[in-house]
Simulated assay, not measured.
Amino acid sequence: MATTTADFETRRHDSFGLRVQHLLHGNPVLGPLAVLVVAIIAFSIVNVRFFSAANLSLVLLQVTVIATLALGQTLIILTAGIDLSAGAIAVFSSILMALFCTDAGMPAPIALLLGFACGTAMGALNGLLVTRIKLPPFIVTLGTLTIFFSLNAVVSNSETVRGADMPGLMTWTGQSIPIGDFRLSYGSIIMLLLFGFFAYALSSTAWGKHVYATGDDVEAARLAGIRTGRVLFSVYTTAGLLYAIAGWILIGRLASASPNVGTEYNLDSITAVVLGGTSLFGGRGGVIGTLIGALIVGVFRNGLQLAGVEVVWQGFAIGLLVLIAVSIDQWIRKVKT
């Protein structure tokens, strides 16, 4: 039977779709990068102030805390887990650091290290409950989310610790370096260095390969000799440390330690990871995509604000982006290898 023109066009369309599917499967960062570039161009056309150095500095400053949280979240989602307590650990750690300085009178470096240790311990608790008690990550972190926020309120008496009452080291992350009209905060520099380190760790170390293998198929990884329990525990513990560092950056960002912030940080960190192309089913994605995802969130919120869009519709746009990203991820996962 002769091939008709319609059949030829259908096959050509299917072939193009398969090529795109394979390309995105092998390079998860390409999709988010294209969205970010298009968004920047579009918002620059809508409002010429968007592409100014001052505004771009603001966008980077605004996404620094969320990006750092999303870095830890990425490690967990790569293992097919989830962490709903990310923001709670960050805020509680920031309060503990501040109180160690002000109430306990500790030197700033000691207070900072103890705060990092507390955040790491909170992440380790999540890891123990997931690996030893075998509880689902969603249930574990939903429970610790409530626990940490409650302890945060008790310890702080729901009172903010002013930056002026803390040593300069605690608010140092909020200071910035001028690069022409662009200002780069020390917190943003720390965040970028962390992304660089974990990009290397995931791509070039045995630990990184074990993280991907565990997320792709935990049983197959176990049969291959990988100690999946240790991998999962290390991921949650490392994420706790990253959340504590985000708490330090948050103190610099706000010039204070407030127990009344961070309720939206958990979902924002997951949003950045999903928009960055990391699969919620584990085993595919990376931290560079997460950084791009965090920037997408920042760019959209800032651009829509400059365009005069109401806050409620800004949230609508971000939510729509998440649904599209998850749908694309489902489509990409169907690729035949």
Rank of each mutant, 00 (worst) to 15 (best):
G127V: 05
V65I: 13
W313F: 14
P137M: 00
V161P: 02
I40S: 01
V29P: 08
I89E: 01
I45Q: 07
A164F: 13
V63Q: 08
L304D: 03
L61R: 15
L60M: 12
L113E: 05
A104H: 15
T102E: 13
T173V: 08
S204F: 14
V211T: 13
L135W: 12
T271D: 06
G72V: 02
R253S: 04
I328Y: 13
L232W: 07
V309L: 06
I77W: 08
D216Y: 02
V65W: 08
H22S: 01
N152E: 08
L142W: 12
H22C: 00
I270Q: 08
F100G: 01
P137A: 00
Y243A: 04
T290G: 03
F92S: 01
I45E: 03
S158Q: 14
Q330Y: 12
A67V: 11
S185W: 06
T337A: 11
A121L: 15
T141E: 04
V299N: 06
L250M: 11
V161G: 02
G208T: 00
L114Q: 07
Q62L: 13
G123R: 05
V155D: 07
S85R: 05
R333L: 12
R132E: 14
N126L: 05
T237G: 11
R183K: 13
V59G: 09
W331D: 01
T214F: 08
G285Q: 01
T64F: 04
I226R: 09
A244T: 12
P28I: 01
L241V: 03
L36G: 07
T64E: 03
E219D: 14
R284W: 09
T4E: 01
A39E: 06
F195P: 04
N302T: 09
R333V: 08
R183L: 03
V211M: 04
L192I: 04
V130H: 12
L75D: 05
V235C: 10
I179D: 09
A246I: 02
Q314N: 04
F16E: 00
W172L: 06
L128N: 06
L61Q: 15
T146V: 07
S44C: 05
F197G: 00
I318C: 06
Y200W: 06
I177Q: 09
R230H: 12
T263M: 03
V140A: 03
D329L: 04
T79R: 06
A294W: 10
V335F: 09
L71K: 13
S204W: 14
L99V: 10
R12N: 06
I189W: 05
V326I: 10
P136I: 01
A257V: 08
D7F: 10
K336H: 14
T120A: 15
N47V: 02
A53I: 02
R333D: 13
L113Y: 11
S156P: 05
M106E: 12
V140D: 08
V29K: 07
A53S: 12
G262D: 04
I110H: 11
C118M: 15
V65D: 08
L58S: 15
I296P: 08
Q62G: 14
G229D: 13
F281W: 10
Y200K: 00
I76D: 02
G262V: 02
P178H: 02
G247V: 04
V322K: 09
I133H: 15
